[in-house]
């Protein structure tokens, strides 16, 4: 039972990060019907950007008074979000808008995004470094136990990640369903030409959608970097998983992406380790296989994902 809870909490932690990244995929898919392959690099740049900010504030992070820590955490989250948003915005300007103007075939967008993804991750490698084990300064004891349920320990960083991710998702949900911007995003997602006739500036809406998705992805990059290590190639695997999560929940559907992300995180941590007594039947080595098999099975039963697929309809 203890092991089960441990893996569940780990799964929720990873899942909430997947969900944050998946939101970026799903938002862009909602308005453009395109997979933004470079989104994983937005995630990566969020980690590097927030690292630079935090490093310049706290140095190596030793002996920081306890009440400053939450502030630093929030600054990190915000700077990750800002950098992610900036990268996502320029990504849209460079890799998407010119192609849109030319009415390029759909796959051309995919390839330009892949080119951008290569470019960004390698540029980050050239600019900063190509080590795979960069770490944030130890500005708080991430692994300290906050509380434990039935012997399963919940650490500070896990609480911080889950709580902040949930808050951001809640915020996004409100934003999309309750504001004018959200209405225009849904409008473009539903029917772009009609939305344009209703006075919505499509280009602007698409830009802002990228910015919102990028901010969430960048913040997730910060969370990921704080909890684990970061590098210029860190985006790839979480990116693929988050994409899978978005598809799992029904791509283009915001709540679907949240549910898909959490579900994927939990499932890929629980199933390979069953029956949670130290003698796994499947084994950690099969984590990714389990994730993809679950994805395939769910898609075979429900071809449009768990919650169905349209952004306009669902949110």
């Amino acid at each position: 039972m203890t092991d089960f809870l441990n893996y569940l909490i780990l799964g929720l932690t990873r899942g909430s990060m997947y969900a944050l990244i998946a939101l970026g995929y799903t938002l862009v898919y909602g308005v453009l019907q395109l997979i933004n392959f470079a989104h994983s690099e937005v995630f990566m740049s969020g980690a590097f950007g927030s690292y630079i900010v935090i490093h310049s504030i706290v140095g190596d992070g030793k002996s920081l008074p306890w009440f400053v820590v939450p502030l630093v955490f929030i600054i990190g989250l915000a700077s990750g979000a800002v950098v992610g948003a900036a990268i996502a915005w320029s990504l849209e300007r460079v890799a998407y808008r010119p192609l849109r103007r030319r009415g390029a075939p759909k796959l051309a967008f995919l390839i330009s995004a892949i080119g951008m993804s290569f470019f960004l991750s390698q540029l980050a490698g050239k600019l900063f470094n190509r080590f795979t084990n960069n770490q944030f300064p130890q500005y708080f004891q991430q692994n300290r136990t906050v509380f434990s349920i039935l012997g399963a320990r919940v650490t500070v960083i896990q609480v911080a990640i889950i709580v902040s991710a949930l808050l951001m998702m809640l915020f996004l949900d409100r934003l999309v369903s309750g504001t004018k911007l959200g209405r225009s995003i849904r409008g473009v997602a539903e029917d772009a030409p009609t939305a344009a006739l209703m006075g919505i500036n499509i280009d602007k809406t698409i830009s802002r959608t990228f910015i919102i998705g990028g901010a969430l992805g960048g913040a997730a990059g910060f969370l990921f970097g704080t909890a684990f290590t970061f590098s210029n190639t860190m985006g790839f695997l979480p990116g693929v998983k988050a994409f899978a999560a978005a598809v799992l929940g029904g791509i283009g559907n915001i709540r679907g992406a949240m549910i898909g992300g959490l579900l994927l995180g939990v499932v890929e941590n629980l199933i390979p380790t069953a029956p949670w007594n130290g003698h796994a039947w499947i084994g950690i080595g099969w984590t990714d296989v389990v994730a993809f098999v679950v994805l395939v099975l769910i898609l075979v039963v429900r071809p449009s994902g768990i919650l169905g697929e349209r952004l306009g309809r669902a949110a």
């Binding site: 460079v94 890799a95 010119p98 192609l99 030319r102 390029a104 075939p105 051309a108 967008f109 390839i111 330009s112 892949i114 080119g115 951008m116 993804s117 290569f118 470019f119 960004l120 390698q122 540029l123 490698g125 050239k126 190509r130």
Partner: peptide, 19 residues
């Protein structure tokens, strides 16, 4: 080390100017 970066740039430019 920079090769992949240049290739990414070439692919990107190609798609922008000749999709």
């Amino acid at each position: 080390e920079d090769r992949q970066m240049w290739i990414g740039a070439v692919v990107l430019l190609m798609m922008i100017f000749r999709p």
